[in-house]
């Protein structure tokens, strides 16, 4: 009997938390759409989420493209279709790998830091202090992160795609002998605007997921993950794990819908 009661309590707790999380997102959107927006905070967060992630995106993008160059060439050469290396690398990066890997990298680099920063602000009563100054903590802390992630993710994804395509060319074109004309020419023929838009929609939604999950986990640190340094540590870990899982699950649904 107690076992059934525990299952019920567990289910109710999860449902309650999902509700809180849903309302958190709704509230974030509503505040994002109504002025005043803290422009300076938005710019600061774009610098943090976007600009400071550039190097890691360039590196991961280039190497992902280089791996795709090798693997693509290896697979395509079995069917005598090396000429399609460009479209294969382009489509893989633009539609799938670019948005997903960029989002996962930003989650690891910036999402964890956002959760930790807001979590520390929560446990040291800085969020209470903001509210007692008559400031809206959502407008000050959450909205700038949401807007910054929405702006940064598509740009980082574009950088990732460009570096990946260049990396693919470096291997396929320079090392394995696929000509530049073939690589880029075929890519232009097979990669269309719909593919680019698919990548863009994905990166926008991943931006929302990263900001949403990271801010939520930080904001409710003392309530859902415990107090003190341990609470912040748990919130940070959970933010990264949950955001990564949600990104991959959401990617599946978006791919199915846009297929």
């Amino acid at each position: 009997m107690e076992f059934i009661s525990d299952i019920g309590a567990f289910t109710l707790t999860r449902l309650y938390r999902m509700g809180v999380m849903g309302l958190f997102l709704l509230k974030s959107f509503l505040y994002s759409l109504s002025p005043p927006i803290k422009i300076r905070r938005v710019i600061k967060q774009i610098h943090f989420i976007g600009f400071q992630s550039t190097l890691v995106i360039i590196l991961t993008g280039s190497f992902s493209g280089m791996v795709l160059g090798f693997q693509g060439y290896y697979s395509l050469s079995r069917f005598g279709s090396e000429a399609f290396l460009g479209p294969m690398v382009g489509l893989s990066l633009i539609k799938e790998l670019g948005p997903v890997i960029s989002a996962l990298m930003v989650t690891g680099r910036a999402g964890s830091a956002i959760a930790a920063e807001i979590g520390i602000m929560r446990i040291t009563e800085q969020i209470d202090a903001l509210e007692l100054m008559g400031l809206n903590a959502f407008r000050y802390l959450i909205v700038p992160n949401l807007i910054a992630a929405l702006i940064s993710l598509p740009l980082l994804t574009a950088i990732f795609d460009v570096c990946g395509i260049a990396g693919g060319y470096l291997i396929g074109g320079k090392l394995l002998g696929v000509g530049a004309g073939t690589y880029f020419g075929e890519m232009a023929s097979y990669v269309g605007m719909t593919d680019v838009l698919e990548g863009l929609y994905k990166s926008l939604s991943f931006g929302i997921i990263i900001a949403w999950v990271s801010c939520y986990k930080g904001y409710y640190t003392t309530i859902f993950t415990g107090f003190g340094a341990e609470g912040v540590s748990k919130a940070t870990t959970q933010a990264v794990v949950m955001a990564s899982v949600v990104i991959l699950v959401w990617d599946y649904f978006m791919t199915s819908a846009l297929f």
Partner: peptide
């Protein structure tokens, strides 16, 4: 606040 709650 007891701990000051200064923005660090």
């Amino acid at each position: 606040f007891q701990g000051g709650a200064m923005f660090d």
